[in-house]
Computed example of a mutant assay.
Amino acid sequence: MTIPVNKLSDPAVRAFVTALNANDESALFEALAPDATMSDDGSDRDVRQWLDREVFASRGHMDVQSEAADGRVLVADYRNDTWGEMRTKWAFTVDGGKVSRFETGQA
């Protein structure tokens, strides 16, 4: 069963997912620390380029199925116009109320 975004436990992760699902670029970058990093399937990527391609240009959307580690690890059905839908795992590092790193990949 999908977890409503407004029920996600960690406020920084909740802000990230809310902005991603709204395709709100300014809100998503506001949820990230200025020097945030990320990886996709174990390979570090440029955050802005990855978000532009995998989220904003392709209308990415997360339906969260479960959360762990106080809301900083999510399993979600992620879909976008490029890849369709797949089960993904997301792990977030939060510092000072902002996401400083996220790691995603197939679950």
Score class of each variant (00 low, 15 high):
residue 13 V to H: 03
residue 91 A to R: 13
residue 1 M to V: 13
residue 94 V to M: 03
residue 28 L to F: 03
residue 89 K to D: 08
residue 12 A to L: 03
residue 39 S to V: 12
residue 2 T to N: 11
residue 20 L to P: 00
residue 41 D to G: 09
residue 12 A to Q: 02
residue 86 M to K: 11
residue 38 M to I: 13
residue 51 L to T: 00
residue 75 V to G: 08
residue 86 M to L: 11
residue 30 E to F: 08
residue 51 L to D: 00
residue 22 A to T: 09
residue 29 F to D: 03
residue 32 L to D: 00
residue 69 A to W: 06
residue 63 D to C: 08
residue 80 N to A: 06
residue 54 E to I: 11
residue 71 G to N: 06
residue 26 S to F: 06
residue 19 A to D: 02
residue 103 E to Q: 15
residue 49 Q to P: 07
residue 29 F to N: 03
residue 29 F to G: 01
residue 102 F to P: 00
residue 87 R to I: 10
residue 13 V to L: 10
residue 24 D to F: 04
residue 42 G to S: 09
residue 57 A to W: 09
residue 42 G to T: 12
residue 1 M to S: 13
residue 14 R to T: 06
residue 57 A to C: 07
residue 55 V to T: 02
residue 30 E to K: 15
residue 82 T to R: 09
residue 52 D to A: 14
residue 84 G to Q: 07
residue 82 T to A: 10
residue 6 N to C: 11
residue 14 R to K: 15
residue 86 M to Y: 10
residue 94 V to I: 12
residue 75 V to C: 10
residue 17 V to E: 01
residue 79 R to Q: 15
residue 64 V to P: 00
residue 69 A to N: 14
residue 18 T to L: 05
residue 72 R to C: 08
residue 57 A to D: 14
residue 44 D to H: 12
residue 71 G to S: 10
residue 3 I to C: 05
residue 80 N to T: 05
residue 68 A to C: 08
residue 51 L to S: 03
residue 26 S to T: 12
residue 6 N to S: 15
residue 28 L to E: 01
residue 28 L to Q: 01
residue 34 P to S: 10
residue 23 N to H: 14
residue 67 E to M: 04
residue 43 S to G: 09
residue 12 A to N: 00
residue 93 T to H: 13
residue 63 D to R: 14
residue 104 T to V: 13
residue 44 D to K: 12
residue 68 A to G: 11
residue 54 E to Q: 15
residue 90 W to Y: 13
residue 104 T to E: 06
residue 94 V to C: 02
residue 46 D to P: 07
residue 19 A to Q: 01
residue 99 V to Y: 00
residue 75 V to F: 09
residue 15 A to V: 08
residue 75 V to E: 13
residue 27 A to H: 07
residue 32 L to C: 06
residue 50 W to K: 04
residue 99 V to H: 02
residue 7 K to S: 15
residue 107 A to Y: 08
residue 55 V to E: 01
residue 100 S to P: 07
residue 95 D to N: 15
residue 72 R to W: 05
residue 76 A to H: 02
residue 4 P to W: 07
residue 29 F to E: 00
residue 81 D to P: 06
residue 76 A to C: 09
residue 96 G to P: 04
residue 41 D to P: 06
residue 106 Q to H: 13
residue 12 A to E: 00
residue 80 N to G: 05
residue 106 Q to C: 12
residue 50 W to T: 08
residue 34 P to A: 09
